[in-house]
């Protein structure tokens, strides 16, 4: 028991990436009913690292969007290890706009190592696609609940991560850069990833303290993969708890609250000297 309550940030990172950790489609299968997947961003080949669709949540229609990793090599190649190209973000946005049009709440699941650093992704404007999603999600007139279930990797995570409530599983991580990336830049030594993981403050408890997330969802002993049904029911309950009051809010109030929420993020000083 103590082992799991005293995990180092680097151990948490390993757990967040654990091959048996529940993935977006597992949550969709367990917390939702009647899922209908919608494919394609309408401009490029479909991006399988992002899944999106319509579903029922507690009998009510909602839209679900999330990054999708694979469980083995074959699946991971199909899912590009959960690293989207711009068309993945654009598909997500298309389906989220559908939610907006028909006034359905949106639930997003975050689980990506990050945006895919390839030539095509750059050519098709991944920076623009991420920026566009952030702005458009801000404008959406329906409640958005974000759940960080595994890896919240940088811009690729943020592109699906703007919401009214951001929830995070106990052993998930969320960071501006991977510990390995940070180590190779700031320490000039990728083997310093463990130190970087500590310095980056990327665990759910850190993020709660930094006021970046609204709720930490505790995982069963040993991690989410040890008892998936228990994890899924906790996730489901947390989503429902945050969604209920948001459903009552007029869209303009949602918009204003979304602005205030993110405006408060950050720490700086104002020294008039």
């Amino acid at each position: 028991m103590e082992t799991y309550s005293n995990l180092t940030p680097w151990q948490t990172t390993q757990l967040a990436r654990h091959p048996r950790r529940p993935l977006t489609l597992d949550y969709i299968g367990n917390c939702f009913e009647d899922f209908v997947e919608l494919r394609g961003g309408r401009q490029w080949p479909d991006d399988n690292s992002v899944v999106a669709g319509l579903a029922l949540f507690h009998k009510e229609p909602v839209v679900v969007v999330g990054h999708q990793k694979g469980r083995d090599t074959k699946e991971n190649i199909f899912r590009n290890f959960g690293m989207p190209h711009p068309e993945g973000y654009r598909k997500a946005l298309r389906v989220m706009k559908l939610a907006n049009k028909f006034r359905r709440p949106i639930i997003t699941f975050i689980d990506t190592p990050g945006a895919y650093p390839g030539m095509e992704a750059e050519e098709r404007g991944q920076a623009e696609a991420i920026a566009r999603n952030i702005m458009e999600m801000t404008f959406l007139k329906v409640p958005i609940i974000v759940v960080v279930i595994g890896e919240g990797g940088s811009g690729g995570a943020v592109a699906l991560g703007v919401g009214d409530a951001v929830l995070m599983l106990e052993h998930a991580i969320y960071s501006v850069i991977s510990p390995e990336g940070c180590a190779s830049i700031l320490w000039r030594d990728p083997s310093k990833a463990e130190e970087a993981a500590l310095a980056l403050k990327l665990t759910a408890r850190d993020l709660l303290e930094l006021k970046v997330i609204d709720e930490l969802i505790e995982e069963p002993l040993g991690g989410a993969h040890r008892d998936f049904h228990a994890t899924a029911s906790r996730v489901s309950a947390a989503i429902a708890r945050h969604l209920e009051p948001l459903k009552e809010l007029p869209s303009e109030e949602l918009f204003q609250r979304r602005l205030e929420k993110y405006r408060r993020m950050g720490v700086y000083t104002e020294d008039l000297q």
Binding site: S178, E180, C182
Partner: peptide
């Protein structure tokens, strides 16, 4: 390594 939003 995936890209990040950080650093040069």
């Amino acid at each position: 390594m995936p890209p990040c939003c950080a650093g040069p």
